Amino acid sequence: MRSTLGSALQLIRFPLMSVEEFAQNAAQCGLLSDREVVNLFLYYTVNPKPQVGYVDRPRSVISGKESVVSRFQRTENRWGYCGTSDRIKFTVDQQIYVVGLGLYGSVHGPHEYEVQIRIIHCGTGRTLAENDTSFVCDGTAAANRVCFREPVEILSGVTYIASACLKGPDSFYGTKGLRRIVHQAAEVTFQFTYAAMNNNGTSVEDGQIPEIIFYTAKH
């Protein structure tokens, strides 16, 4: 099989499989060496991830209009930060690509925040994407756009965690959060649930991460 595939072997998207899919199928098919199997298991489970030599970008392409789902109905102040990430779980009913998060900024006027944003796969605890960056807020209650380096593939029916760890002064926060939101234009339904432990107080009803910025997927 390896001889027939040749260089096409590196085009197989092993990194995009779940650890369960890999363990039940690819790891047992005899195509990969023991060392390659171990490296891929490490890729799924540890950070920083080892180089595995396989394509890790989805075949699907993002297209169409960018969309934003907003989960709060009003804003309040103030929300503090002490080094713990704000986190919220979400699922969708069709494949999308998340390009970033909307985050609240300072109640004290314009300010620059340092922030680490992440998307985490709940089933494995694997970080699918993260970006250590910064953003400058204008002192209003508007959400500030903070993006990943590349879009993150989100599969239908799978639970993920959106996470943001901010360093900066007290900010606005959202209240009257919605558990289920149907985004009519994008034809996507979002379900939000509580991410227990180390969430800086963020929940479905109150907190940070007011927006998820996304595209729908077309093959």
Rank of each mutant, 00 (worst) to 15 (best):
M1G: 13
T4Q: 11
G6F: 00
V19L: 14
E20D: 09
F22E: 00
A23Q: 08
Q24L: 07
D34I: 08
R35K: 15
E36S: 03
E36V: 00
N39R: 09
N47G: 05
P48S: 04
K49H: 01
P58L: 00
I62L: 04
G64K: 02
S67I: 01
V68W: 02
T75C: 07
T75N: 08
E76H: 12
N77C: 14
R78E: 12
Y81N: 08
C82E: 15
T84L: 12
T84F: 09
S85Q: 13
I88T: 03
V92W: 02
L101M: 10
V107K: 08
V107Y: 12
G109V: 06
G109A: 12
P110R: 15
P110Q: 13
H111S: 10
H111E: 13
E112N: 12
H121E: 11
C122E: 12
G125K: 03
L128E: 05
E130I: 02
N131P: 11
T133M: 03
D138F: 10
D138P: 00
D138Y: 09
R145K: 11
R145E: 10
C147E: 07
F148S: 02
I154K: 06
S156H: 11
S156R: 11
V158S: 09
Y160R: 04
A164T: 05
C165K: 14
G168N: 06
D170S: 11
D170R: 07
S171R: 07
T175A: 14
K176N: 15
L178D: 07
A186S: 13
F192T: 07
Y194L: 11
M197I: 11
E205W: 13
D206P: 08
G207E: 12
P210C: 08
F214T: 01
F214A: 02
A217N: 07
A217F: 15
